[in-house]
Each structure stands twice: as C-alpha cells, then as structure tokens.
Design a protein around this nucleic acid. Structure first.
Length: 161
DNA sequence: GCCAACGTTGGC
DNA sequence: GCCAACGTTGGC
C-alpha cells in the first residue's frame, strides 16, 4: 500500500497550455517548466513518482479544475533558466548551481465537466484549501487527501486513487 | 482592463 | 535588516 501517496495542484493558463494540450503531447507528458517561485519550486522538489496532480486552469473563463495528471519524473534542473531566448531565462542561475527545477507530468484524465472555482467556494471540506485562500497565487500547491477526495467526488469520479 | 495581493530587488 | 519601488499573478 502506498502510504506516501501525495496530492498536488498545478496552475496553467489554458491559452498557453491546457489539459488538452497535455493530452495531445508526445506520450501525453510534458516537463513542467517555468516555475519561478521558491515556495512552488520547493513543493515540486517534494513530488514523488505516482503522486497525483489536479490540473487547474487559471486566467480562464471560468477559472477551474480541469482534470488530473500524474508525476512521472521527479525534480531536475529546468533548462529554460539557462536559455537566453526563453522568457524564463534567469541570468542569476548557473549550471553548476541551478536555481530552478521542473518535474515531468503525464495526462491521466479530463473531468467529465470542469469544476469552476466558484463551485468550490463554500464546499464543506475545502474551507482551508490553498487555492481558495484570498490572494493565493501559488502555482504549485499541496492538496490534502480529504480535499482530493472531496474534489473528485464533486467531479463525479470514483476510482482515481 | 483593473487592481489587490503578493514576491523580489536593491538602496540605505 | 528595513522597506519603497517595482513586477507578476490571477480573479473579476
């Protein structure tokens, strides 16, 4: 039994990279690059193989949880930090001491219907969810097992462990 | 497009 | 180490 199973939520703007883009990616996987926030990076460093991830659409209409992905590679240096042509280039980082990491995730499923942010507010069991905290901007965040179960129930999904 | 909330930077 | 200025996030 996997007692170490953990749950997370990552944000992406669907106009940039949506859950369908993930589903259409080679092997349905992608490197989750471009995270430039220390707290978010530190959470990524805690991710383990097989951890499950809620895929959230920010700056969307409506903003919503759109589906589920899975961690398929643990943290390793984000190569965009060394790429001068990248928006995510970080001149203060060096290859000998990289500052930013990324993980790889793989598509698991799209929710039958997205769960709008509005729908989550006020739900019993989600009162303390990071996503719902006023002013929360964290793009990678932990989700508790009870929050996970609650979200999946709202999404009408029974079997995702 | 607005702007509140938040994180980072850099002068002192 | 403080904090003002600035940049970014992301809901609305």
């Amino acid at each position: 039994m996997k007692t170490s199973q953990r749950y997370w939520l990552v944000k992406s703007e669907p106009s940039v990279f949506s859950i369908r883009d993930l589903a259409r990616s080679p092997q349905q996987r992608t490197a989750w690059d471009g995270v430039r926030n220390y707290q978010a990076r530190n959470y990524m460093r805690q991710m383990a193989l097989g951890d499950l991830v809620l895929f959230y659409h920010s700056n969307a209409d409506p903003p919503c949880v759109a589906g589920i992905a899975e961690v398929v590679r643990t943290a390793y240096p984000d190569d965009t930090q060394f790429d001068k042509s990248s928006h995510h280039y970080d001149p203060a980082s060096s290859k000998s001491n990289p500052r930013w990491d990324m993980v790889d995730i793989r598509y698991r499923r799209e929710f039958p219907a997205v769960l709008p942010l509005d729908r989550l507010r006020g739900v019993t069991g989600l009162e303390r969810m990071e996503l719902l905290r006023k002013g929360s901007r964290l793009s990678v965040q932990p989700v508790t097992p009870s929050e996970w179960n609650c979200i999946l129930k709202l999404a009408g999904i029974k079997d995702e462990k």
